[in-house]
Design a protein around this nucleic acid. Sequence first.
DNA 1: GTCTATAATTCGATAGAC
DNA 2: GTCTATCGAATTATAGAC
Lengths: 214, 214
Amino acid sequence: MADSVPSVSSVPGAEPDTAPAAASDTASDRPRRSDATRAAILAAARDRFAADGYERATIRAIARDAGIDPSMVMRYYGNKAGLFAAASEIDLRLTDLTSVPRDQLGARLVRHFLDRWEHDEALTGMVRVAVTNEAGAERLRGVFAEQILPVLAAVCPVPAQEVTARVALVGSQLVGMGMLRYVLCLPPAVDFTNEEIVNWLAPTVQRYLTAEHP
Amino acid sequence: MADSVPSVSSVPGAEPDTAPAAASDTASDRPRRSDATRAAILAAARDRFAADGYERATIRAIARDAGIDPSMVMRYYGNKAGLFAAASEIDLRLTDLTSVPRDQLGARLVRHFLDRWEHDEALTGMVRVAVTNEAGAERLRGVFAEQILPVLAAVCPVPAQEVTARVALVGSQLVGMGMLRYVLCLPPAVDFTNEEIVNWLAPTVQRYLTAEHP
DNA sequence: GTCTATAATTCGATAGAC
DNA sequence: GTCTATCGAATTATAGAC
């Protein structure tokens, strides 16, 4: 006990690469010789964390998937928490919604999240990790605050201090359907067509965003 | 790999107790001498699984919490999967709803689930396990089919073949709020009062149960 | 029924050769 | 930059004494 989950921060002994990183060269994005290896590790890590969760995803298995030695993972990312931090970047790809007709916001959002959930298994994986791992939960809270909240705040026609609550309500409906359909695989939730889900959930989301406080 | 999670079934070497269990005695509920120990183990297991998830909850820690030896856990429940199966019984306490006024079903359901979620941390624990453990997911699917579906089918005024989908929609909203509020602890979801949640979610649940197909 | 002792794995992490 | 070898710790699970 008391150990549980290491909070993810900067990696201790990582990046012991080439240059001393002084203020000298022209561009800051100097390509490393090992970029291919790093990318392979991150891809394998994303898959493993997504499929197995934080605890069961072992560095050894990730390295095997990436076709490299487990010690390379340690060298590049310091420890398991550092690897997770590097591999768990989520991009919801929520673009600006100000040009969407006000009364179609709900349908647009539901459709977007269904699409993201189906084409990015990393999303399911992040939920899987966030539920059992505090660092993962913090990641998801960050996604909410940095990716969802600002985009919806720009189009949510309610007082500023109310927007956060509205977005949480929207999130609860979208996350819940994602849980049942993609994580728990509850049969009736899996059997829906995407259009059925849009038809049912869009009015809910629309109401959470635009209706007056009940 | 290929091991991942052992599917929970009957425990192999458990119950090597007293009687041969033939067809003889008066009542089938013969109290065992070790019932207190078994109960202590189950209580500790529920807490540990809920707090740490399946992988991080160790038999040693559970035994320590219960004040007994780890080997007793093995003796009674065979292995870790068997212990989880015995400790993960969920009772949603969803009683008959046929006497609830039709137009108050939504509010009643939302209130009930908020109450269950707050007074039974095992619920949060089950979600935590179900997300990373196939046996846990199967458990939750069973709860849906055996506890939620029948009770709502009795009061859901739509064609029989539609009821399952309606109940899944209701579940998506309730599970989603539970996730944000109790599992991920997203600040705006935590800050709601229960009444605010009822006021927002009840119309949604009501619509999923009673509105015509959109 | 309860506990001690330990087998058999497996994991994260380190040291160092090349 | 990559890999071999290995340490130390933790885990589930078993065998057997009392």
